[in-house]
Design a protein around this nucleic acid. Structure first.
Lengths: 201, 201
DNA sequence: GATCAAACGTGAAAAAAATCTCATTAGGGG
DNA sequence: CCCCTAATGAGATTTTTTTCACGTTTGATC
């Protein structure tokens, strides 16, 4: 994951197209052995003295993580955050395509948000069924998230990307990925409060 | 961090105000011992047979993580994501207050985004100096992020919350918290591609 | 072509994290 | 008032992760 980001960024500009585990390790601030271990875990073998072929590695990671497959998703809640996600063009790199956006607010239905027409919640279930959608992005207000999650699961959604600051409960076979920012906030708050101490000591 | 979220959610509605490590562990799906270990690490001692006092724990976590202190921040880049962050009211719970928003686009300067007047980039440095800002939220396009980070560091910003999909490099004493969604995306893509196997096996 | 150095793969060792066990303490019931 | 259960705290144990060390492979150099 971190490898993929780093390699697809750096690999584009460099012609040699090979990289050593040591270089990767230095850039990502980890142990070279770790890199080799991880790579061999997904069936990647480097060659002595040369290292790894960047394109090869990227492809293997794409396959291992499923970025090579097309994943269609719906987005629910076209507020600020929903709009930001719709406008983000980087998802395609990972095989993710947001094919429809929905919102509770009937006044928004029919309007365009980031080039995507907002659909009514009434058409949510039929749409998911018809297109076999398995992933939903939740960017709704807190109150609605749990009920919505239940509805989504009942029509066959297999994964929910939860951007609301709520814990939602689902059957075990469904994946919920919480994208809370509170964790990052913790790290920052901790640093800011304790940062004064470290330089002086 | 997870504790704080859980306790401040559940604690509000329950009068008893005490909770056992086992209850917390069950809710967060971890080991009860882990909870006790973590709590004792920040100087929290439960009492036999009763458990832990919810308010007490919350307060200790707030202090330990620095949520009890006021952190003022500036936000740079008032696009969709910037607007979403400005509109999010949950930051105050963690002591974070976004006191100003800036944008490159001169046409946006002066307009209101989520109740906050957008300021010109020219006033960024003086503003940070004047108010002693130590944290900046970056929600700009990719191209600008590194140059902006350098500028921020040069005027004394001690932490950068990076919402752009770019790695930025800063002096070691400055904290950069990357809020990339690619990691979450990895988890989801992996689940969606491999999910078919697990139920059948 | 033979040698040398750089980088890999792998198995062992060390470190860290999670888990288990148990003695201790504190409330509740008889 | 004493015992019993429920929950803690801390030490021991196990598991996982990270790191180290060494033998092997491969391209470059003489």
């Amino acid at each position: 994951m971190r490898y993929y980001r780093f390699l697809s960024e750096s690999g584009a500009k460099k012609p040699p197209q090979t990289i050593t585990s040591a270089q990767i390790a230095a850039a990502l601030d980890i142990d070279p052995t770790q890199v080799r271990k991880d790579f061999s875990a997904i069936g990647l073998l480097g060659i002595g003295r040369v290292g790894f072929e960047v394109c090869e590695v990227c492809r293997a990671i794409r396959v291992a993580l499923g970025f090579d497959q097309r994943h269609e998703a719906v987005l629910i809640g076209t507020g600020h955050l929903g709009a930001a996600l719709l406008a983000y063009s980087g998802f395609a790199r990972y095989g993710l395509h947001i094919v429809a956006a929905f919102d509770m607010d009937q006044r928004l239905v029919g309007s365009k948000v980031a080039g995507c027409t907002v659909k009514s919640m009434r058409s949510l279930k039929p749409f998911i069924r018809k297109h076999g959608i398995r992933l939903a992005l939740l960017t709704t207000p807190v109150e609605a998230s749990q009920k919505l999650a239940d509805r989504l699961v009942s029509v066959g959604v297999k994964a929910i990307w939860n951007f609301t600051p709520t814990r939602i409960t689902v059957p075990p076979e469904v994946l919920v990925r919480d994208e809370h920012i509170s964790l990052g906030l913790s790290v920052i708050a901790y640093h800011l409060t304790h940062e004064v101490d470290s330089p002086s000591s």
